[in-house]
Amino acid sequence: MVLKTFFMMSLFFIPLLTLASGSINSVWLLFLLYILSGLGMAGIGMCVMHDAIHGSYSKNKTINTLLGYSLNMIGANATVWKIQHNILHHTYTNIEHADDDLNAPFFLRFCPHAKHYWVHQFQHIYIWFFYSLSTVSWITTKDFVRLKHFRGKGFLSKKNEYNKAFASMTGWKLLYYLYALVLPMIMLPFSWGLILVAFLSMHFITGLLISVVFQIAHIMPTNEFPLPDSEGEMNNNWYAHQFATTTNFSPKSKILFWLIGGLNYQIEHHILPDVCHVHYKDLTKIVSETALEFGMPYHVKKSFFHAVKDHTKMLRSLGKKEMA
């Protein structure tokens, strides 16, 4: 974990520091450095902050807290992520209106219980563009919208908690824009428009990578989208629910496992979120055999590309009105 953290942090910061130093005068190098930084950004998100905010990076809570702020350094916000991901997504996986990952603009439909619009029939085509925009939305408006939304749901209810979170978020985002965009615009001999396009290319790659990795774990044909009964209760216990709503992919790829923080073992992560991802591969045999013993599903796609293909099929099915 320490080696991976150093690698991903370096991959993110070294290109940006090079850009901020004003030491390059090549357009192709401008884009290359931003794209490399985008890969580092995705690596920090999947390999460092994800474990840290779950409290599974280290036994030391202070280390987890500090490394959780790596999310703030890449333009997002640890406070919002903890509510949206740790609490809502992990507790209410694939439950409409409860799992915040299913909440989407009207032109995207991630759940068979969501309202259908005619435009959804094309979502399996245009979804990739919006996946690419996801971190651009994240660093601009999405965190602020979610922070206000979560306050309305009863979070951040302590005195001044919301105001402090809002101020902290604003400060972190301004700092991120300063070193990732403003300094390169000041120091480099290129037009601000060209630098902005290069900056956005970084986020297009990061957004696409992160969105696809997380989405192919849950928006799949084999996964369930259960609803609570009339009293708001779920039929399954929590562990059975996680098996029914989650899918692994590419279990034999050691390279992918290392690069994406073990998120190809989403089942192991969902039932053991407080375990560091470096252990998922060793746990999979125990978890899969336990699922078989108790008659629970254990969904696995043999490769990343098979998972993306099935995810696309699911998006296409969700775009059909008869699923409404």
Rank of each mutant, 00 (worst) to 15 (best):
303 S>I: 08
169 M>T: 10
147 L>M: 15
94 N>H: 03
318 L>P: 10
229 D>R: 05
144 F>A: 12
113 H>I: 04
94 N>T: 04
51 D>S: 11
286 I>P: 00
322 E>R: 10
154 G>H: 09
128 W>M: 04
19 L>P: 02
306 H>T: 13
258 W>P: 00
241 H>T: 03
267 I>A: 06
224 E>T: 07
252 K>W: 04
228 P>Q: 05
140 T>Y: 12
248 N>W: 07
285 K>G: 00
87 I>A: 05
27 V>S: 11
121 Q>H: 06
241 H>V: 03
183 L>T: 09
174 L>P: 01
80 V>C: 06
283 L>V: 02
225 F>P: 13
64 N>Y: 08
169 M>R: 01
140 T>I: 14
308 V>M: 12
192 W>Q: 11
318 L>C: 06
109 R>P: 10
101 D>V: 05
113 H>R: 13
62 T>D: 00
213 V>H: 01
102 L>E: 11
100 D>R: 12
282 D>G: 00
233 E>C: 03
228 P>N: 03
213 V>L: 02
24 I>C: 02
119 V>Q: 06
316 R>H: 12
85 H>D: 03
62 T>F: 14
193 G>L: 12
314 M>Y: 09
73 M>A: 14
316 R>T: 00
245 T>K: 08
139 I>W: 09
46 M>C: 14
82 K>C: 04
4 K>D: 09
169 M>H: 07
75 G>P: 06
301 K>A: 10
55 G>C: 12
125 I>Y: 12
191 S>M: 03
192 W>D: 08
194 L>K: 06
94 N>I: 08
140 T>P: 05
173 K>Y: 11
273 P>I: 08
268 E>Q: 10
198 A>Q: 08
234 M>Q: 12
142 K>W: 02
128 W>A: 03
157 S>P: 00
285 K>I: 07
67 L>V: 05
178 L>P: 01
293 E>M: 13
206 T>H: 13
60 N>T: 03
155 F>T: 06
11 L>M: 15
118 W>K: 14
323 M>H: 11
24 I>T: 02
22 G>Q: 08
160 N>V: 04
317 S>T: 11
281 K>P: 00
210 I>F: 07
313 K>T: 06
234 M>A: 09
240 A>D: 12
198 A>V: 09
44 I>T: 04
206 T>W: 11
201 S>H: 02
288 S>V: 02
196 L>W: 09
